[in-house]
Design a protein around this nucleic acid. Structure first.
Length: 255
DNA sequence: ATGGTGGGTTCCCCA
């Protein structure tokens, strides 16, 4: 089974890139973030024609997540279903075959110290609670998506310039590690030691041209899922060319 | 001190 995660930055604007990519890569499961549309606006037909089942948790203008899968999608949950109201569509969970999927679009945070930054830290606390309370790490659990957090300097093209900046601050990194202490590991680092592998390049600074990227899209896996994971690859080709998203897809291969 | 680009709204917000 191959599972992809991709922040598409509007599923409707990105459809000319998404459809040929699905045809070429044929992943078994795709976790999409920032679909930026309501459920009823999601372009279901052309994706269904390629053989995918679809579950969405949409929102007008901002955020929105979706799961595509060739196999049946069961146990779908929209939001964290805790005692806090989900005002934004940032999490959709489901089961496909023997894999429990958690698709997340983590709050960006804008800048360190901003109200959005505090919201990000609070949101990650909620996510941690979800993983502790609703998952058994003896199962194959795959949490993936846009985490808007780097793990360490290896994930940053210019670590000194980004030191304690948004996406790279110690508090964000600690909050992400706390989500993972339920029993999740960064699957990319099972396979790749060296730095310089990125998943996001800012449009505003034309970061793609100089490969000024950050690695903020991740696969976090429970031990049984990690054992089955034989590769995690970043599809840089999808970030190139005409009207790309600012994120590259990441594809995990499970034996 | 704060731009730059891109997407979706609505005359601006968020990334």
């Amino acid at each position: 089974m191959r599972i992809a995660t991709w922040n598409v930055n509007s599923v409707r604007a990105r459809l000319p890139r998404i459809l040929p990519w699905l045809e070429e890569k044929r992943p078994d499961v795709v976790l999409l973030q920032e679909i930026k549309c309501l459920d009823e606006q999601f372009p279901r037909e052309p994706i269904e024609e390629l053989g995918y089942n679809i579950e969405t948790f949409g929102q007008k203008t901002y955020n929105g997540v979706a799961i595509l899968a060739k196999s049946r999608i069961t146990d779908v949950q929209r939001g964290m279903r805790d005692d806090v109201e989900d005002r934004e569509s940032r999490v959709i969970t489901a089961t496909v075959e023997d894999v429990m999927l958690v698709n997340v679009y983590v709050v960006n945070g804008q800048e360190v110290g901003a109200p959005a930054y505090e919201k990000k830290l609070e949101w990650l606390k909620r996510l941690r609670k979800l993983m502790w309370e609703q998952y058994m790490m003896t199962e194959k659990v795959v949490m993936a998506g846009d985490f808007n957090v780097t793990f360490d300097d290896r994930d940053v093209y210019d670590p000194e310039a980004w030191r304690e900046k948004i996406l790279c601050s110690s508090l964000e990194r600690e909050a992400l590690l706390r989500v993972m202490d339920a029993g999740l590991k960064d699957a990319f680092r099972k396979h790749v030691e060296e730095g310089g592998h990125y998943t996001w390049w800012d449009f505003r600074t034309r970061a793609w041209v100089g490969d000024h990227g950050l690695r903020i899209d991740h696969f976090l896996m429970s031990a049984p899922a990690l054992r089955a994971c034989t590769a995690v690859e970043i599809d840089r080709d999808a970030r190139d060319g005409e009207k790309p998203s600012d994120h590259a897809p990441v594809i995990a291969t499970m034996e």
